[in-house]
Nucleic acid binder design. Structure first.
Lengths: 190, 190
DNA sequence: AGCTTCGAAGCACAGATGTGCTGCCACGCA
DNA sequence: TGCGTGGCAGCACATCTGTGCTTCGAAGCT
């Protein structure tokens, strides 16, 4: 091997550039040229690590999804897990905003969909385990509904905070999540 | 006036073409040429009604947002209002999917943002009134949190149903919304 | 009939994008 | 010392996009 270069680190740098672009200007601006410029490289160099533009997008989604899912899995408390899905600080805001953009794109992009589904499954599994621990005797059907009720609330909150951020500060986010978690098992599922 | 043409109807047809494209292939495919082809017209004709591409996008968002907000405002019952924000049938699925795509795009598109904000405000006002009716004596701060708790849940549900549709059928959506509505006022807001 | 006016259609051009391909250059082994 | 291989840079081309501008056609009023 000739010159020694940490390829994995380079790929991470490029993914970081993608994240900055999505956070600032949206997925539409993620082109090879924009990404290369943001990463301080040229198109040819980016393509040396990601053969096609689609490969770059898929890898970027995998990277953020893994970051977010990892943070959720690292928490033991249910509320703490859910808080990892809220844009309560700058890092989470960027990751969640990128993840949300990619997830919506996955609806119409066959290459992105399995990655988005897998990430969602990881998070849902963690939340499902916490709900099971909180409600040991609940039926499976009700467990799914209760987990979905929590997850949907948190992701709806995140969406609101990202799009209409001025009307939804971190305190309100937290209050809503705590209140929502307190309703666990308080209501029968039809 | 020479030839008689219903300009408003033509604009509606073009917006319908935009909706079909967004629902099928995402916002990225909404270009003048694609929209014209989908509407059975040519670029020049579409531009006769919408001078620029941005104007077309803004008007399409206005139209969908107005449809959805109108449907919510037409319902008297809180649960019925919330159900208008779920993709429980094909028409609502298309509208909500288009609306969600535009709302996320509004985060980084200054022309779209005020329209998205206004639509959100209309829906939030309706839900807020219903929450006020259900909890007449609650404090304003708690009312906002409770309304947001409901709205976030419903929009999170809608997002899940749109992206990961196979894991979330209409019955589960409905069950979650009913259960969520039943938690209104059952928990103190910190 | 003739003219005006609007709806529709179609160029043409500049800019951006993905991708195939070639050139360059430094390093480390022979 | 020579040289080949991996990392990097860039060109070239076809495609797609938005938009300015022109052209055509048909209807209705005078």
């Amino acid at each position: 091997m000739p010159r020694f270069v940490d390829a994995a680190a380079r790929r991470r740098e490029i993914v970081e550039a993608v994240k900055r672009i999505v956070a600032a200007d949206g997925l539409a601006r993620v082109s090879l040229r924009e990404v290369a410029a943001e990463a301080g490289l040229v198109v040819g160099s980016v393509r040396h690590y990601f053969d096609t533009a689609e490969e770059l997008r898929v890898h970027a989604l995998e990277a953020v999804a893994d970051d977010v899912a990892g943070r959720v899995e690292a928490e033991a408390d249910l509320v703490a897990q859910l808080c990892q899905l809220l844009p309560l600080d700058e890092a989470r805001a960027v990751d969640l905003c990128v993840l949300t953009a990619f997830r919506l794109a996955a609806r119409t992009d066959a290459a992105l969909l399995p990655v988005a589904d897998a990430a969602h499954a990881r998070v849902a599994a963690v939340v499902g385990r916490s709900v099971r621990a909180a409600l040991p005797d609940v039926e499976p059907h009700e467990l799914v509904a209760e987990a979905e009720r929590l997850l949907a609330t948190v992701e709806g909150l995140a969406l609101h905070a990202l799009v209409h951020g001025r009307w939804l500060d971190a305190d309100l986010c937290l209050a809503v999540v705590v209140a929502q978690a307190a309703t666990l098992g308080r209501v029968p599922i039809s």
